[in-house]
Design a protein around this nucleic acid. Sequence first.
RNA 1: GCCGGUGUGGCGAAACUGGUAGACGCACGGGACUCAAAAUCCCGCGGCCGCGAGGUCGUGUCAGUUCGAGUCUGACCACCGGCACCA
Length: 876
Amino acid sequence: MSDLSHSLPEYNPQAVEAEAQSWWSDHDSFLAREDATREKFYCLSMFPYPSGRLHMGHVRNYTIGDVIARHQRMQGRNVLQPMGWDAFGLPAENAAMARGVAPAAWTLDNISYMRRQLQALGFAIDWSREFATCQPEYYRWNQWLFLRLLEKGLVYQTTGTVNWDPLDQTVLANEQVIDGRGWRTGAMVEKREIPMYYMRITAYADELLDALDGLSEWPERVRVMQANWIGRSEGVEIAFPFDPLTREAVGADGVLRVFTTRADTLLGATYCAVAAEHPLATVAARTNPELAAFIDECKRGSVMEADVATAEKRGMATGLFVRHPLSDARLEVWVANYVLMGYGEGAVMAVPAHDERDFEFSLKYGLAIRCVIRSKSGAYTDTTAPWQPSYAERGITTNSEGFDGLEFQQAVAAIASALEKKGLGQKRIQFRLRDWGISRQRYWGTPIPIIHCETCGAVPVPEDQLPVVLPEDCVPDGSGNPLRKRQDFLNCACPKCGKPSRRETDTMDTFVDSSWYFLRFPCADNQRAMVDERVKYWLPVDQYVGGIEHAILHLLYSRFWTRVMRDLGLVALDEPFAKLLTQGMVLNGIYFRKTEAGRLVYYHPTEVDDQEDSSGHRTVVLLADGQPVEPGGIGTMSKSKNNGVDPQTLVDSLGADTARLFTMFTAPPEQSLEWSDEGVQGASRFLKRIWKAVHAHVASGFAGPVAPGALNHFQKSLRRQVHQTLAKVSDDIGRRRTFNTAIAAVMELLNALNRAETSTPEDRAVVQEALELTVLMLSPIVPHICHRLWNVLGHPGAIIDETWPLPDPSALVAETREIVVQVNGKVRGRVSVASTATEAEVRTAALADGNVQRFVDGRTVRNVIVVPGRLVNVVV
RNA sequence: GCCGGUGUGGCGAAACUGGUAGACGCACGGGACUCAAAAUCCCGCGGCCGCGAGGUCGUGUCAGUUCGAGUCUGACCACCGGCACCA
C-alpha cells in the first residue's frame, strides 16, 4: 500500500470543486420546477444583507440549509432552495457617507461579489429566482400591500418617538446613539414625537399567540420568546376619578386610567404614577417649571427598553390628586421614569407593599406603604423593609375593607365587579405587543406611497401610479433624508384634486421587505401580481434556517404579514415556516489594547500569539512588537471587535468542502461555534484521508458485490458497523439535524476501514460497499469531493442524482451484546452475553463476573435491576 | 431590569428516553518513515493512588428525588443572545 500511495493522485480541492460546479451548472442541476406529481420541499435560509463580503455566519447558515436541501433531494423530494438579497438598509447609507458612493451602486457591487462567493461554496441554489428587495419590481408590492392595508384600517398614522440629533437635524437609529449622544455630532440626543405609519399587528395578537402551540417543529425557546413578547395578560382597567383640584387644573372632569394585573392589591395603592409623556404630566408642568424641567430631562433619555428598565428610578410629584375608586382616599399623582407610555395606559397604580419597583420608589421618596396581602406560605407577616421576592406572591387579601380573606382569583373577580358597578373599572386583556411602526426617516428603503396635498391631506398614490420609484443616485451626507432635497421626487400632482403636492419622503422599515420575500421566490418573474398559484405548490417553507437573533422580530412580522395576505385572499396559508432551525453565532477570540486616551484598539486573533504554559500561566503578545495584549474573552465575529475570519481566504486555500465540513463538525447547529484554525486543518486532513482511502482501494481494482452469507466474523462485524453508521447518519441528518455527530460517526467508520483486512475478495467487497456508502453519506455535506470520488469508485453518473441509501437490516443483527454490571450504581465489570439471552441468564452471567463477586461477597444482595440489553445493577 | 439560552478534560464537543461520563476532532507526549524537516502512519492522553489487577474523586455552586443523576426538582453564580430604528 505504501508503494501504491506514492502514485495516487493528490487531492486538489480547487480542481475538484471547479469540476463539480461546472457539471452542476452545465446540467442546470439546481433548477426547481413546479411538478404537482412530486412531493415538494421548500428549503430556505434567511437571505443576507449585502454588506460586502460573506462572513462565517453566512457560511454556517447556508451550509446547514444546503445539507438539508441536498439530503432531501436524495430522498426523492422536489427541492426548491432559492436565494435573494435583503438589500435596503442603513449600512448602505453609512458606506455612502464614508466613500461618497450612492447606496444603490454600493449594494449592487456587493451583491455580485457575494453571489460569486455563494457559488464558490457550492450551494445548490436555484439562481433563476434571485431578486433583491431594492428592485422596484419587488418593493412595488410593499407599496401595493401598504395601500390595501390602509384601506382596511390595518395601517394607520399616529405619532411615535424617535431619537433626534439636534445638530444634524436628523433622526438617529438606536445603534447611532452612543451613550446618549449622536454618533457623528456627539450632541446630546433628544426624543421627538413625529407622525408615523403603523401596522396594526396587535389586531392579530391573539391569533399569533394561540398559533404558537401548533408550531411543533419550531424550537421551544423561540416559541417561548414569542409568547413572552406578545405578552398577553389578563387584568383590570381601573379609573381613578380626578380630585376637585385636578379637575380645576385640567379644566374638565375626568379619570386617570390605569391597567393592572394585580387588582387584588387595589386597596394597597398609595399613589399613582404616570409616564413623562402622559397628558396629566403635561397639564401639571404648565404651572410647575421644576416639573417641566424634570419631564424634559426624562424625554431626553434613551427610548430603549433596556435603558429605561435599568435606569435609576426617579420621579416628581405633580401636585395633582385622584380619588381611590373604592376607598375614596386622596392619592397623589407622580411622574416616574419607570412608567412606559407605550404600555397599557401610560399610568400605573402604585402598590409599594407588593411591587418591587413601587417599593423602591416609595422608599426613595418617603411614600406610604400599605400591606394588603397575607402570605399563604407564611413567608412574611408584614412588608415594611427590605424587599423580598415573596412580597409579590399571590396570597390572601387582608386590610382591604370588604374584600378580606380572598384568594387571588376571587379577589380580582370581587374587586372588578365592585368597580364595574361604580362604572370605574372592568376586566380587560392587555398585550405587551405594540403596533409596528414602519416609517423610517431614511433614504435607502421602500418609499411610502403617500402624497401630501394642502387641500386633501395625505392621499394614497393610486394603484396605476405604482411603483413610486426611489431615485438611485442620491448620496446621503448624514444631515437628514436626501429625498427632501430631490425636487424631481418631491413634486407631484395631488391624485384627488390635481394641485401641486409633495411626496412623502419617509421610507419603510426593512423588516417589511423581509416579511414576505419567501412568498416571492415561487413567482419572482410575475410582474402583474404580488403572488400567484405557484405559491400554493411551494408554500409553506418546509425548513427555514437562520440566526437565533431573529427569533422574535423577523419571525413574528413574517407570521403577521402572512396572515394579513391570507385575509386579503392572496394566499391560503396561516403559518409561513413549518420547521425552523435557529443556528448559533460564530465566535472568535477578542484581543485589545487600551490607548492612553482610553480608547480600545482591537487586534485580529491572527496578529496575536496566545499561549498557556504547563502551570496555566497565559501569555498574550502582539506578533508585530512582542508586547502584551489583553485577552477580551470570546465573542461574536464582528467588524468592531476585529475578529472576523474571511471565508474567501479559506475557500481559496483549502477549499469550500473544508469550510463546509469544519462549520458542520465543530458544534451542533443550534449552539454557538468557536473558530479554530487548527480545527480547520483537521477538517482538511479528514478529506485527504477519505480521498486516499478511495484511491488506494480502486488502485487494486474494483471489488465485486458483497455476498452476506460468505462473510467471516470480522467481515460481518465491519459490515455491521457500516450499516449502523448509515442508520445513525440518516437519523442525525434527517431527524436530529446534528451534523456534527453524523460526521463523527463517519470518521469512526473510516478509522475502522483503515484498519480492515483487504486480502480476500470478501474483504475487498465489504470495503468497497463501505466506501460507496461513506461517499453517499457525506455528499450533502462535502458535495464536491464526493462528486469526484463517486466517479472514481466506478460510477458513471453524478452523485447528486443518486438516491439516499437504506441500511441492510440483516447486516445490523449482532450475535452477542456487552452488558455493564454495576454494584450499588458503580461499574464493576462487563460481561458478554448472547443477544437472545433471557433476563435470568443475563443476571446469572452478571453475578458470576469475578470483579463483581469481589464486591458482592459477604454481603446480602437486596435487589438486582436488569435493564435489557444495557446493564445490570446489583444492590447489596 | 425583563425574556431566552449555555456551563462536561488543556480546547471544540459526545452521551438522543434517568442506565458504561469524555465517542469524534484539536492541541500535546512518545514511536515509525526521513540525512533532516514537513507531510503521513502507529501508540498514549481527566485528576489522584497503585508495578499491576484495580481503586478513588470528577459534568458551574449548594441542596433534593432515585437502585442509579451530566440528564429530573429547587435555590444560587458566571457567560452569551434579544429588548421593538442594526439586520
